[in-house]
Design a protein around this nucleic acid. Structure first.
Lengths: 335, 335
DNA sequence: CTGAAAGCGCTTACAG
DNA sequence: CTGAAAGCGCTTACAG
């Protein structure tokens, strides 16, 4: 099929001016006389001309696109962050490209950091190799971070958030508090577990080895952790569990209840993230609210500032969290 | 800052060949002698040259990008569909651009259907104006569809799915079956409500006016529907409710239980979608499983086929659904 | 097998 | 205020 889309030269011919003038009328009308501008406008309407963005971008040595590197697109946790990113990028005239780092071959990930591919990068996956991201296009890290990669980070204070959880449970009177961790090696898992241990110590408590359960942020891994917990003797198992994600907390509560036990009667449960669902499960989940929309929005704003040559605000942007106390936590039952 | 990235001409100079030869060595090595190819390879390594995709795309009159138009990026329902799309696009060498149709101004949406913006479109929002999408770049519709827009549709048979729900509830002995609809005007809402009415009729039942509750697919609207239901006299309110989304079903169950009633003891509840959570709420939700990953995957495959000039398979791709029976449905209590 | 040249569709110093 | 011309970084008929 023939390419019958009008080009800038078609408009120029019809308006009786040069292509340079048409281009100016489009991108900087003040440079063009009122009269000429009108003629160009008429020619544009007559031809149905639309600017070819790709050509403009090539000339400007930009792509007009920002890539978000997401560990797992299927995980609803990232939906709101993407939404926040998109809400900033669209109005600013940038496209949002998304790539699933788990699904893409490692080789292709490098391509995303190419200046011919995107003008900037929002990295949501802390497990990417720092070397592949260093010295390439502008980037910001959001939620997670890549050890050894110097870049602006938009995140929450995970350790402080966990301290709120520990204090809440300790204040309720719990002494044996367990933890279901995130995936091993993940920066968030490490920060939350570390913060958890430290705050327990500050409260004169310790994390017993058999009160630390493996997890991977998924519902299913929370359910599996509940099986472990259920298998432990009632007299020594934790009376409260802090799980590093809401998904795991929901899986945990479901399994516990399926076995006829009650939350918080038999065990208090705290999650992390405050996904929409947590207020609607039974019992509603006590959790840490993470401002996901704002994380996405601010990450995008910071990245654009950087791309557009603003001053290099290095240092992190730490967003506030909040402990949302609902019905899944209560004082331990006397035994 | 200077642009110091090597171009194809830098490689050519170093290798002592023309740019045409470098280009051929890159895109069609068979055209180039072994010897020359090796020289070019050496020059590429020496310069650290990387192909500028944007320039290649301009020359090829393509963009290398596919846009997904999503009604609401923050809705986790779309996360898995995007994941399915991405799993096809990445390996095929296309970028995935996402735009939130609710967040973007209506004006900008037109830009997404520009050939200079993307090579194709996956439309997940049935509320877009058909006129804006007609006669532009190749597109497929997924999940929802735009009335009056002729395009391949990848979807489920909503009416057949709803018939499974009605049969299940009627077989359990329910006679007063209510419905919480999706947003007014939405094509899915209409298809599901219509199918619901028809199948009730086929079973000799009717949808009483006070057994039809408004909703908008959100958790909160399901909760609000439960308030309406709770306010109705026990003797005449529905003994079973079919909700047009799982999110609404979770909101509904949460509110009912908060009022001390039981599911399915006091009311049977059926959702739609089978989002990951539904198996873990209490009680686990009976629902229609919609193959979201496959919808995304197939939509992307069909679009690429179309773009790459395959035969125009018009007609719809209808994906199978399944009624997943869990614990939220049971025979009605005798009264 | 290889090169010179035109061109994808824009933009922008430079000159007038 | 406007135009001729070069150029963004590639690709590909055409000729040899």
């Amino acid at each position: 099929m023939k390419n019958d889309r009008p080009r800038i030269s078609d408009v120029a011919r019809l308006a009786g001016v040069s292509t340079a003038t048409v281009s100016r009328a489009l991108s900087n009308p003040a440079l063009v006389s009122l009269e000429t501008r009108a003629a160009v406008q008429d020619a544009i309407s007559a031809t149905g001309y639309r600017l070819n963005q790709a050509a403009r971008n090539l000339r400007h040595r930009r792509t007009g696109g920002i890539v978000a590197l997401v560990p797992n697109l299927a995980n609803p946790f990232f939906a709101q962050i993407l939404s926040g990113i998109a809400s900033v990028l669209g109005p600013a005239g940038y496209n949002l490209l998304v790539a699933d780092t788990r699904a893409e071959g490692a080789g292709r990930l490098l391509d995303y950091a190419e200046p011919s591919r995107a003008d900037g990068l929002i990295v949501l996956d802390g497990a990417l190799p720092a070397a592949a991201l260093t010295g390439r296009i502008p980037l910001v890290l959001a939620c997670e971070w890549v050890p050894g990669l110097a870049a602006l980070r938009v995140k929450i204070d995970n350790r402080a958030a966990v301290a709120l959880v520990v204090d809440h449970l300790a204040d309720l009177g719990h002494r044996r508090i367990g933890h279901v961790a995130g995936p091993p090696g993940n920066v968030l898992s490490i920060a939350r577990l570390g913060g958890f241990r430290d705050r327990l110590a500050a409260r004169g408590l310790i994390l017993a080895p058999d009160a630390l359960y493996p997890g991977d942020f998924s519902l299913e891994s929370g359910r599996a952790a509940a099986e472990c917990w259920l298998a432990q003797p009632v007299s020594s198992r934790p009376t409260a569990i802090f799980l590093a994600s809401d998904a795991m907390a929901c899986g945990f509560m479901g399994e516990v209840r399926r076995h006829g036990l009650s939350v918080p009667g038999d065990v208090s449960v705290v999650g992390f993230d405050d996904i929409e669902l947590t207020g609607h499960v039974d019992p509603p989940l006590t959790t840490i609210r993470q401002p996901r929309l704002a994380i996405g929005r601010i990450a995008a704003e910071q990245l654009l500032r950087r791309i557009e040559g603003g001053p290099d605000h290095s240092g992190d942007v730490i967003l506030p969290v909040e402990l949302v106390i609902r019905a899944s936590t209560a004082p331990p039952m006397p035994r």
